[in-house]
Design a protein around this nucleic acid. Structure first.
Lengths: 344, 344
DNA sequence: ACTATCGTTGCAAGCGGTTACATGAAAGCG
DNA sequence: CGCTTTCATGTAACCGCTTGCAACGATAGT
C-alpha cells in the first residue's frame, strides 16, 4: 500500500537525525541509551525495515553468498546444501543458489557469478571449473571455495572427500571378506563436466587390489553413463559370464542399486552369490540394506561455508584444503566369499 | 585488486556522460547506434559489471525471489526447487533460499522475510503459515505464492496437489483389485507445522471406501510420527492381528517402505499376501517396485514460480489456486486380492 | 527566415542507507 | 574559571546506478 518507512521517517518521528537513527539501529556505542530506546521504539511502531539494497550499496558489500551446485536434486547435493544453510543460518549472509545441469549453464555462471558486484563469496559444489577458467578464478577478487571438486590441481580453498581412499576402503572391505575377483562398475572417466570421482574411486580400487597382489582383469571393469539402468545393464553383462567376479564395487549407490537389480534378474543371491558395495550412503541404502562408503555430506557443506566466511573476513595467503575421510557402512549386501571346492 | 570499474569510468573513457552510458548498456532506444557501440566496447574492455546493489536501489526492486522451504533434503523439496530454478533461470531474478526445520525458524522467517525491502516475491514450499500470520500475509505488499500448502483456508495464490483426490485414487486402485479390508498408515494429524497431507489423504481414503459401502475399522488406522521405522512398527502391530487387512495405503512412500519392512519381518509376501501403495513417487519407489501416487513435483515448482512472477508483474485481484492432479504409478506391490475359501 | 520537431545527449536529483568530520554541551582538572 | 576531554548528535558527502527534464543541433515544414 503505502511506501515503507525509511530511516529518515524514523529519525524525524524520534526527533533525531538519520545519522543517529542509523547508529542506534546498528548498536553503535556512540548513542545515548535513552535516545536509542526511543528510536528503537519508533522503528518498531513504524515497522521499519532497512532496505537491503541501500544498506549493501552503502556498505560496499553484498552480504550474499552464492552457491553454484550441479544437479541439485541428487541426494548428495541437497544434503550438502543443508550443511551450507546450517552454517549460514545465523550469519548476516543471504544464500543465492544456482543450479547447473548443462555445460552451457556452467560456463555462463563461471563467467558472470564471481564478481564482487554480485556476491561476497562463491561456493561451488560438485562442479569442477573448466580448465581455461582456472587461472582467472585463482586471481578472482571474490573468495571462492570448492566443495567436492578440484583435487590438487589448483591453488584454491576447498573441502573434499578422499575418493581414492574411499575406493581403497571399499575394496579392502571386500578383500577382507575373502573376495579375490572383484568387479568395478562406474561412470565413464570422460564426461563433459570433468567429474573425477569415478576415476578416483577406481584408482583406490586398483591400489587396494595391487597391494593384495591382484591384477584387475579387463572384463571386470564396466564403465558407462551415470544411472541405475545403465549400471544394471553393465552389471548384467559382467555377471552373465560364467567366470564372473564374486563381488562388485560400484562407484555410486545409484549404480550399486542397478547392480543389485541385475543380480536379481540373473537369479544371483546377494550377498551369498555376490557381494555388492556402493558409495555415498544415500537414504535408499538404508532400506535396501546396501553396504556402502559414507561421505560426510552435511559436514562438507558446513565446513565449506565456514571456510568461505573465513576467507571473506580475511583472505588467507595459502588456500586451505580440507579433506574428509570416508568410512564403511556395512549392511546386508556384503558377506564372506562363499566356499568353493577348488581353492586358489 | 583494484576497484572494479563503475559506469562513470566507462562513460569517461567513452567520452560520454554516465546517463548515456547507462542508457546504452540498458538498450535504451534513446541512444545513437554508434555511440552505443563505442560504449559497449569500452565496457567490455574495462570488464565492467554493474553493481547490483546500486542498480536495485535505484530501480526500487530487489530482483530477488525468496524461497522458504521445509526440509530441504526431502526428495520432494529438492525436485520442487529444481522446478523453481528452471522457471527462474532465464529471468532477471536471483533465487534466495531459506530452509526450515524447526518451528522457531519458520516463525522467524515468516516475520522477517515478506518485506518489500528484502525481496520482490516470496515462494513458500510445503510450509503452512501459522494461523496468526495469515491475515498479515494476505495484506502483505510483497506477492506470496504457496506451493504444497494452504488448501482453501486462505485467500492467497497457491499451487497444490489434490491430496484428497490422491488418497481416493490410491484407495480406489486397491478396491479395484478386489480388496475390502484396507488399512491406513500415516502421519499423526496433529503436528507442529500444521502439515495436512496425511489428514487429506485419509479423507480421500475414507471417501473412496464410503462410496464402496465400506466402513473404516478403527484397528485398520495407524497414525504416528513420520518416518520409516515408525511406520514399520505401526504396520507390524496392525498386521500381526489374525484378522488383518489385505492391503495398506501409506500416506507417504517413506512410510510405505516401512510397511514393506514390517511385512517382510512377518513373513508376508507382497503383493500376494498384502498389497501396499504409497504416495509421492520418490526415487526409491522405482527400485523397490513400490506402487504409488505420483505428484507433479517439478511442475508444481515451475508453476509456482511462474505464478509468482506474474503476480510481481501485476498483482491480480483474485488469487489463483492451481491444482495438480495426481496419478497412480503401478509397480509390483499391489495385486488382486488372493482368493479365499469363504466369500463375502 | 522562423519555428516546430526529432534524435541525442548531459545535468542533476534521487534511491535509502552509512560515516567522516564538525559541533556543541557537559564534565574533568589545575 | 578557562581549558581540555568526552560524549552525543547533526551535517553532508558518498555508495553507483537510473531517469525526468532541459538543452542543443539538425532537419523539416510553412
Amino acid at each position: 500500500m503505502t511506501k515503507p518507512a525509511t530511516i529518515r521517517d524514523v529519525a524525524r518521528r524520534a526527533g533525531v537525525s538519520s545519522a543517529t537513527a542509523s547508529r542506534a539501529l546498528n548498536n553503535s556505542p556512540l548513542v545515548n541509551h535513552d535516545t536509542k530506546r526511543r528510536i528503537v521504539a519508533v522503528a518498531e511502531e513504524l515497522a521499519f525495515a532497512p532496505s537491503l539494497s541501500a544498506r549493501r550499496l552503502s556498505l560496499g558489500k553484498t552480504q550474499t553468498i552464492t552457491v553454484v551446485v550441479s544437479f541439485l536434486t541428487r541426494p548428495q547435493a541437497a544434503e550438502r546444501l543443508r550443511g551450507i544453510d546450517a552454517a549460514l543460518a545465523d550469519s548476516e549472509f543471504d544464500l543465492n543458489i544456482y543450479n547447473v545441469e548443462t555445460v552451457e549453464k556452467r560456463d555462463q555462471y563461471f563467467r558472470t557469478l564471481p564478481l564482487r558486484q554480485r556476491t561476497d563469496g562463491l561456493l561451488v559444489v560438485s562442479l569442477p571449473p573448466p580448465g581455461h577458467n582456472l587461472s582467472r578464478l585463482e586471481r578472482s577478487d571474490v573468495p571462492i571455495v570448492f566443495i567436492d571438486a578440484l583435487e590438487n590441481t589448483a591453488n584454491l580453498p576447498r573441502v573434499l572427500g578422499d575418493d581414492v581412499a574411499g575406493g581403497e576402503l571399499a575394496t579392502q572391505h571386500l578383500l577382507d571378506l575373502g573376495h579375490r575377483r572383484i568387479g568395478y562398475v562406474g561412470d565413464a572417466f570422460d564426461n563433459p563436466f570433468g567429474f573425477t570421482s569415478s576415476r578416483d574411486r577406481f584408482d583406490g580400487f586398483e591400489r587396494a587390489l595391487a597391494s593384495a597382489g591382484i591384477e584387475v582383469g579387463e572384463q571386470d571393469v564396466a564403465l558407462g553413463a551415470h544411472g541405475r539402468y545403465e549400471a544394471r545393464d553393465l552389471a548384467a553383462r559382467m555377471l552373465s559370464h560364467p567366470d564372473r567376479p564374486t563381488a562388485i564395487f560400484a562407484s555410486s549407490d545409484t549404480q550399486a542399486l542397478g547392480v543389485l537389480a541385475a543380480a536379481q534378474d540373473l537369479g544371483l543371491h546377494v550377498p551369498v552369490d555376490l557381494s555388492v558395495i556402493g558409495y555415498d550412503d544415500i537414504e535408499a541404502c538404508d532400506f535396501v540394506g546396501l553396504t556402502t562408503v559414507r561421505q560426510h555430506l552435511f559436514e562438507s557443506g558446513r565446513q565449506g561455508a565456514d571456510l568461505l566466511m573465513a576467507e571473506i573476513a580475511e583472505r588467507s595467503a595459502t588456500p586451505q584444503a580440507v579433506v574428509l575421510q570416508p568410512s564403511i557402512i556395512q549392511r546386508r549386501t556384503t558377506a564372506p566369499r562363499k566356499e568353493v571346492p577348488h581353492q586358489d
